[in-house]
Design a protein around this nucleic acid. Structure first.
Ligand SMILES: [Mn+2]
Ligand SMILES: [Mn+2]
Ligand SMILES: [Mn+2]
Ligand SMILES: [Mn+2]
Lengths: 217, 217
DNA sequence: TATTATTTTTAGCTTTGCCTAAAAACAATA
DNA sequence: TATTGTTTTTAGGCAAAGCTAAAAATAATA
């Protein structure tokens, strides 16, 4: 099928595409993948040759239907493995990402199907990210960012948009995890930092943090 | 650490070393790894530079202590993953080898330890091959080849020295698996083929087959 | 609009791991 | 021992995926 590197590019394009409407830029890809822009240009041309992306010089790339399906398959594997590691192998949620980055490239249709079955066909991974099904359908949850709430709102944490171990450990220390109930107490206008109540404790979160926390109210 | 390719070479040298006393030849490696002799020579020189093997031109290679430990670690992962696939994910024993060839290269000490714990620290994989422990110790079973038995002997199958799906499926059809009890009825002198009794049925096995079946009596 | 700054692409190199063909070393045999 | 045959190594190349430095295109600004 496709190389590990190609799969990583497709996944990166997929993630960046969720945030912008038009083409994904060379520089954003090179930043996310820790490579140089020149390397991205080269790879992107190869992906275009294989009909995985549409590419117009200087205008960025977009996944084709084929490329999107391929990306979804990798995302599916990544999130299933993360679920497996947390649910069955006693991993903490901040320990799984690096290993899942490796496991997501294992090629075996049967393995994915059996793993999914074994885990009880979960819809969300340990970070609250939706797991695409075998056909690439994503369970669409109407999530808001915590930063979009007003003082007085109550909500439940449903996702975290930062895979770094340091952010996830920080959340642990604050007592914030999946399905944690919170109440917004106050928002400072000068820096948009937020004071929230979690388990009877009041804590303060920066705008950067509240942007990375998804909630349902 | 080491590349996937380097790990495959170390594992191949390890396996070949179990059958010969002195150095592993370039040609045997190239055959096992499906590469050309020239490629083996090159890689072997790199492994020697990294102190993983001892190499003398024209005399073959042998693993150093470091190389052996590394090989054992890969073998351990391969066999633990095979056990996982069969014990937990409904794989048949002839379906696991290819996938384990991929999974054995995943790098995570915690993953190996937790997987081992999850499986109840098994000593043997689905093919009866011993699983090295975390320190590289192999449970040493004094196994014989079925071909070494005489007419009248009874024994129990404890291992199979051929990873090919076709051989394992053949055994399935004959009703032979791990811990199957057998009795040797007759050995033909002209081709060393053997008639054995399995579950009240008499079947005939070639010398090639009986060489690949390990038993305990 | 002309100039400057930024982004993207091109050109040319490097490393890894493989290949083929030719040379060298070792093994077998007349 | 001299010749022939086999195995191993060397030499020279190739594709993948990265890099730096320079050129080209686009964007920003005077
Ligand atoms: Mn992740
Ligand atoms: Mn995740
Ligand atoms: Mn195997
Ligand atoms: Mn096995």
């Amino acid at each position: 099928m496709f190389t590990q590197s190609e799969e990583n590019y497709l996944k990166a394009i997929f993630h960046l595409q969720e945030e912008t409407n038009d083409g994904v830029s060379t520089s954003s890809l090179s930043e996310l993948l820790n490579t140089k822009a020149a390397s991205v240009t080269e790879m992107v041309k190869k992906l275009a040759d294989k009909s995985l992306v549409d590419y117009r010089k200087y205008y960025g790339v977009q996944l084709t239907e084929l490329g999107k399906n391929q990306a979804l398959s990798v995302v599916r594997k990544h999130r299933l493995w993360e679920s497996f590691l947390v649910e069955r192998l006693n991993f903490k949620w901040d320990e799984v990402h690096e290993v899942a980055e490796q496991l997501e490239h294992i090629k075996s249709a049967k393995l994915v199907e059996e793993l999914d079955k074994f885990l009880g066909r979960p819809h969300y991974d340990p970070h609250g990210d939706p797991i695409p099904d075998a056909n690439g359908n994503l369970p669409k949850a109407a999530k808001k960012r915590l930063s979009q709430l007003k003082a007085g709102n109550r909500a439940v944490c449903k996702g975290f948009n930062d895979t770094s171990s340091s952010f996830l450990k920080y959340l642990d220390r604050q007592g914030i995890g999946m399905d944690t109930s919170i109440e917004v107490l106050q928002i400072e206008s000068f820096d948009e930092s937020m004071t929230i109540k979690v388990d009877e404790k009041e804590i303060s979160l920066s705008k950067t943090a509240t942007d990375h926390i998804y909630v349902e109210d």
